[in-house]
């Protein structure tokens, strides 16, 4: 009762979770102690024995008969009924399709030739403003915050880069961008180990080598992160020169 009173007081005075918890806890603990002590002290210990009944006679085939002997071709009827039930079950499953949206948006993300690169706050980025060793979250200009389009912009010494020859023009001034969605199970690859030029996923520790086209070097991811080809546009800002080099994310 003291505990209940304390709980009500704590609630009325808005004293915070700790006092409310202590009040309620003390009240319940008191009640618990009461029940247990009562059971221990004031109840005669007794032992009762329940017998387990022996198994009854099993259900016979006759008990389970559906139709009487007058009906011939019973199995054919039963099969027909089973087929009808099966068909109805299939029909009932079809509307589950409504849970998935009609069109697949996954394929489309905002990157295309000439689409300008912007930061989380929407500002465009000049290539020589990007510091070597920094990592910036970037989006297509008109799809800020899009989960599929998100990418990480980095800058490394151009001499370190060991990319496939067809990607030689994708990294103006050593600025290089990869999809930020991990190819393992889709977490944002949010950490950058600048000293070893490795992107690091905080969820399951997949590590990607930035200078070698984001090939996975350790952890569970098996595919490299798709690369975003970059160019410097006429006003000196970074822009995409195409879409990602491969499908984004897991799967």
């Amino acid at each position: 009762m003291l505990g209940s009173a304390a709980f009500i007081t704590a609630y009325v005075k808005n004293a915070g979770a700790a006092w409310e918890g202590i009040g309620a806890g003390v009240a319940l603990a008191g009640l618990s102690a009461f029940a247990l002590i009562y059971a221990q002290r004031f109840v005669r210990p007794q032992e009762v024995v329940d017998e387990i009944a022996a198994a009854a006679a099993p259900v016979s085939a006759r008990d389970l008969d559906l139709a009487d002997e007058r009906v011939s071709r019973r199995t054919a009827l039963h099969r027909l009924a089973a087929a009808a039930v099966g068909a109805l079950a299939c029909a009932a499953l079809v509307p589950l399709r409504s849970f998935a949206p009609a069109r697949r948006r996954a394929a489309a993300n905002g990157w295309a030739p000439g689409v300008r690169v912007v930061r989380e706050d929407g500002t465009p980025i000049k290539a020589h403003d990007v510091d070597v060793g920094s990592a910036t979250t970037i989006f297509p200009q008109h799809m800020r915050g899009d989960a599929g389009a998100q990418a990480t912009l980095l800058r490394v010494e151009p001499s370190l880069l060991a990319l496939p020859p067809e990607r030689a023009t994708w990294t103006p001034l050593g600025c290089i961008a990869y999809s930020r969605v991990c190819t393992h199970v889709g977490c944002p690859v949010a950490l950058y180990r600048a000293a070893s030029q490795q992107l690091f996923c905080p969820c399951h520790q997949s590590t990607f080598d930035v200078v070698r086209a984001a090939t996975p070097v350790s952890g569970p991811a098996e595919r490299p992160l798709p690369q975003l080809p970059l160019v410097i546009d006429r006003e000196g800002y970074l822009a995409a020169s195409g879409g990602f080099s491969g499908p984004v994310g897991p799967g």
């Binding site: 979770a17 700790a18 006092w19 409310e20 918890g21 202590i22 309620a24 806890g25 003390v26 009240a27 319940l28 603990a29 009640l31 618990s32 102690a33 009461f34 029940a35 247990l36 009562y38 059971a39 109840v43 210990p45 007794q46 032992e47 009762v48």
Partner: peptide, 28 residues
């Protein structure tokens, strides 16, 4: 022990004890 009263009392005690522990954890 029979359900009533021996077992019922003990089990009620357990219910209150579980609730008490959770209230203290939840509060503190």
């Amino acid at each position: 022990s029979p359900l009533w009263p021996n077992y019922a009392l003990k089990s009620t005690g357990l219910l209150c004890a579980v609730a008490a522990v959770l209230a203290l954890l939840g509060g503190c």
